[in-house]
């Protein structure tokens, strides 16, 4: 059952991602990317990471992409301008680089799969228990990773300040 669900959601994510990078219109790209986020949320559910799945939809689809959409609408790119740009050009070296990357890292993955004990086998996996609930993640986040958590707040503050300074025309 999980295999089928994974293929459905993973396939959805992959196809949406491919469509997202090949669309000419940024709005269409953004919508396909939302599809990818949903596919990945499905993958997370299959992997029993429910909290991550919910946060994925909440943060990526609910906030980040709405912001993206807002900015794209604000820029108001005319279809005429998009037509001038023409259909997206895919330089052959770029495709080659992507293919090369997937081959190289796929080879590394295959190598890792061959290593005994790297991936637990079926029986071992069935015995694994992982509590992906909000409570467990919260305990981990505010326990072991408290310092990292606090540092992200500084990162976000930097992000806010940077965005304000960049978009403000003149600081008076």
């Amino acid at each position: 059952m999980t295999t089928v669900l994974f293929i459905v959601f993973g396939g959805m994510a992959l196809v949406s991602a491919l469509l997202a990078v090949t669309r000419q219109n940024p709005i269409a790209s953004a919508i396909w990317l939302v599809g990818m986020f949903f596919g990945l949320a499905g993958v997370y559910v299959v992997l029993e990471a429910y909290f991550v799945a919910a946060v994925q939809v909440l943060v990526y689809a609910g906030a980040i992409m709405v912001l993206f959409l807002f900015v794209i609408m604000l820029l108001d790119l005319r279809t005429k301008q998009l037509d001038e740009e023409g259909p997206p050009k895919m330089p052959i070296w770029g495709v080659l680089a992507a293919v090369l990357f997937i081959v190289a890292s796929g080879w590394a993955l295959m190598d890792a799969v061959g290593t005994p004990g790297f991936f637990p086998d079926a029986e071992e996996r069935a015995a694994l228990e992982l509590d992906g609930s909000a409570k467990a993640i919260g305990a981990d986040l505010f326990g072991r990773w408290l310092l990292a958590f606090e540092v992200t707040s500084i990162l976000l503050l930097g992000g806010i300040l940077g965005a304000v300074i960049l978009t403000k025309r003149r600081l008076t």
């Binding site: 709005i27 919508i31 939302v34 429910y50 909290f51 919910a54 946060v55 939809v57 909440l58 689809a61 609910g62 906030a63 709405v66 959409l69 807002f70 609408m73 609930s133 909000a134």
Partner: peptide
């Protein structure tokens, strides 16, 4: 019976705006 019921509602309710924003666009 979702253990993350509140998050689920907040997440899904946030999706509804796409309909409005895209409809407008």
């Amino acid at each position: 019976d979702l253990n993350i019921g509140v998050l689920y509602i907040l997440a899904i309710a946030g999706i509804g705006v796409y309909g409005i924003a895209l409809g407008g666009w």
